[in-house]
C-alpha cells in the first residue's frame, strides 16, 4: 500500500514536471524592457554589469530599503539575544573540548583568502558578477569560520557598529549629493564615468558598492556573533 502510494506520488510529480519541461521554450530574443536596460546601463552608467547598474542606480532606493531591512534584522537579533552574560554557558566540571590544531591552522591560512575574495567581489561589482551584498556575505562567512575554528576570538561590537553606521550614513549622504549635483537621489553621476570597463569607472557605483559591502559584512558578522553566545 505504502509503496503503491509513493509510486503514485512519484508518477504524479513526474507528470507535473514533464508538463513544465515540455512547455519550456527558450526565449529567442530579450524583452523590450531588458533590451532597453541592456543598451542604457553601459551607455549612461558606464557599468558592464547591467544588474549592478540597475540595483545601485535605477533602483537605488530599493537597495537602500534592503539595507534598512538588514539593519532592522541586526537590531532585532541584538535586542533578543544581546545583553546576556556569556559566562553562564560553561557549566562547572565539564570543560569545552579544545579546538583541533589542524582546524585552527587551516583557518589561519584560508581566512586571508576568504577576506581577499570578499574584497575582490565587492570591488568588481560593477564589472562582473558580484557587488556589495554578495561580497559582504563572503566576508561574514569568513568571520563565521573564525569563530568556529578559533573560539577564543572576541569581536569588537562597538567598532563594528560604528563602522556599519558610518557606512550607512555615507551611503545616504551620497544619495543626497546625487539629489544636489545630479539627476536625483542616489544618481551615480556625481563622479566622472571614467574609462568603460576599468576598476575605477562607472561614477559612484564602486563607492556605493564598497559601502554596501562594509555595511553588510559588519552587520552579518555581528548577527553571527550574537548567535554564538
Amino acid at each position: 500500500m505504502k509503496a503503491a502510494s509513493s509510486l503514485l506520488a512519484v508518477l504524479l510529480f513526474g507528470a507535473v514536471f514533464a508538463g513544465i519541461v515540455g512547455g519550456y521554450g527558450e526565449r529567442e530574443s530579450v524583452s523590450a524592457l531588458a533590451e532597453q536596460y541592456l543598451a542604457m546601463v553601459p551607455r549612461e552608467l558606464g557599468a558592464p554589469n547591467v544588474v549592478t547598474g540597475i540595483l545601485i542606480t535605477y533602483r537605488g532606493f530599493d537597495t537602500l530599503g534592503e539595507v534598512a531591512v538588514l539593519f532592522m534584522v541586526a537590531a532585532g537579533v541584538g535586542v533578543l539575544l544581546g545583553g546576556k552574560d556569556t559566562t553562564t554557558a560553561s557549566e562547572p566540571g565539564r570543560e569545552p573540548r579544545r579546538p583541533s590544531e589542524l582546524v585552527g591552522n587551516g583557518a589561519e591560512i584560508t581566512l586571508p583568502l576568504i577576506f581577499l575574495f570578499g574584497a575582490y567581489v565587492i570591488k568588481n561589482g560593477h564589472l562582473s558578477a558580484g557587488g556589495g551584498f554578495q561580497g559582504g556575505a563572503v566576508v561574514a562567512s569568513g568571520t563565521m569560520l573564525l569563530m568556529l575554528a578559533l573560539p577564543a576570538t572576541k569581536l569588537n561590537h562597538g567598532f563594528l557598529g560604528v563602522t556599519e553606521s558610518l557606512a550607512g550614513v555615507v551611503y545616504v549622504g551620497i544619495g543626497i549629493l546625487g539629489l544636489v549635483f545630479a539627476a536625483g537621489f542616489l544618481d551615480s553621476h556625481i563622479l566622472p564615468l571614467g574609462e568603460f570597463g576599468t576598476l575605477i569607472s562607472a561614477g559612484a557605483i564602486p563607492v556605493i558598492s564598497a559601502l554596501l559591502g562594509v555595511k553588510v559584512g559588519a552587520e552579518l558578522s555581528v548577527i553571527i556573533d550574537r548567535f554564538r553566545n
Binding site: R97, V103, G106, T110, L113
Partner: peptide, 24 residues
C-alpha cells in the same frame, strides 16, 4: 588554480573537523 587550492585546503579540513566531532 585558486579554486583548486581552496578545495584542497578546505575539503580535508572540514572532514577532519566533522569526523573529530563525531568521534568525540
Amino acid at each position: 588554480l585558486v579554486v583548486a587550492y581552496f578545495v584542497l585546503m578546505t575539503n580535508p579540513l572540514s572532514s577532519h573537523a566533522l569526523s573529530r566531532a563525531a568521534h568525540a
